[in-house]
């Protein structure tokens, strides 16, 4: 039985949360299959970052220019590793890098790829993956072929155990593959925020009551790493610029988290945000329409909730 390969990613020189999750899952599967876990990471910090990873072995790939993500070089290298180690599973996060490497490496290696996986378990004979399809409207149960597969995993699917290990780290030096290179890193644009690009929106409606309370929303947004958006009446009142308006006559957003604070959920508003991955609504009126699209709801006063939440998030 081949090993389980996990492609690690790093944030600020450490294993990313998602990579930890993947390793935890890989460990669990490896145990039940009697296999081993190999972590693969790119860049000069990989060796250090994977030193305590919950893996049996680790391959740190280094080389000139590899600290920066290079699609072509990474893919060719990973392809080579896959062909060398014959892993049963190659797990990558469904990040930009995962979107590049997953299907690309699978096709090059004549393996199948299973994408948008958010669950993995073993049953009587097989490893079974659960995948999200059709924008989350359906789930699919996919049997991992006996010959193995590449799996791209949605971040936040598994949770990590926090266990660390002592993998034997091999450093592998490679040259970057000519043909595609990074010209420059682009800093996030300044100027008013683009709410359509934010992963987290702290959205306020007329329930905010007074423009002075916007400070609370802003503090919460900073604590949670999000951006403040709003419903139309808040823009009408001149409390926030038009660019922050969500809805039919404003922006259509699809963030990972939409906090609807004091928003009633008029159809024109819902039209702009109902496809958010997670909607949490706070509205003193439990019968307000926002509760019909929200995943979680609460009836506490937002003026109490915002500072309480911000404090907790900051305190973490």
């Amino acid at each position: 039985m081949g090993p389980i390969l996990v492609v690690a990613e790093f944030t600020e020189g450490e294993l990313s949360d998602t990579s930890r999750e993947l390793l935890t899952k890989a460990r669990e599967l490896a145990q039940s299959l009697g296999s081993e876990v190999i972590a693969v990471g790119f860049g000069s910090h990989a060796e250090h970052a994977m030193a305590n990873a919950d893996a049996d072995r680790a391959v740190a790939i280094t080389g000139l220019g590899l600290d920066q993500y290079l699609p072509l070089t990474y893919e060719r290298t990973l392809s080579q590793i896959v062909s060398e180690y014959h892993p049963l599973l190659t797990m990558v996060a469904n990040s930009t890098m995962g979107l590049d490497l997953g299907a690309g490496v699978a096709a090059a290696q004549h393996m199948p790829v299973i994408a948008y996986c958010n669950g993995l378990h073993t049953d009587a004979e097989d490893i079974v993956a659960q995948c999200q399809a059709f924008a989350g409207k359906l789930l699919a149960e996919v049997a991992v072929p006996a010959g193995g597969a590449v799996i791209t995993v949605l971040p936040g699917s598994f949770g990590s155990s926090g266990t660390s290990g002592h993998p034997e780290v091999t450093v592998m030096a490679v040259d970057s593959v000519p043909g595609m290179d990074v010209v420059k890193i682009l800093e996030p644009e300044k100027g008013d925020v683009d709410i359509t690009r934010a992963d987290i929106l702290v959205s306020v409606g007329r329930g905010i009551g007074d423009p002075e309370n916007l400070g609370l929303a802003q503090e919460l947004a900073e604590a949670i790493g999000g951006v403040v958006s709003c419903s139309r009446p808040v823009v009408d009142a001149g409390w926030l610029p038009k660019a922050r308006q969500v809805g039919k006559s404003g922006q259509t957003v699809k963030p990972k988290l939409y906090l609807a604070l004091g928003i009633s959920g008029a159809p024109e508003h819902l039209q702009g945000m109902k496809d958010a991955d997670l909607i949490i609504a706070a509205n003193t009126d439990e019968s307000s329409s926002i509760m019909e699209v929200a995943h979680y709801g609460t009836t506490v006063d937002i003026l109490d909730l915002m500072p309480a939440l911000a404090e907790r998030l900051r305190g973490e």
Partner: peptide, 24 residues
């Protein structure tokens, strides 16, 4: 190489938010 998709199914739908009780 083809995948063996055993089945598609609908996630358990909410319909209404799960209410969180308690104080702030």
């Amino acid at each position: 190489p083809e995948l063996e998709i055993r089945r598609f199914f609908k996630p358990v739908a909410a319909g209404h938010a799960e209410m969180i009780d308690g104080d702030a």
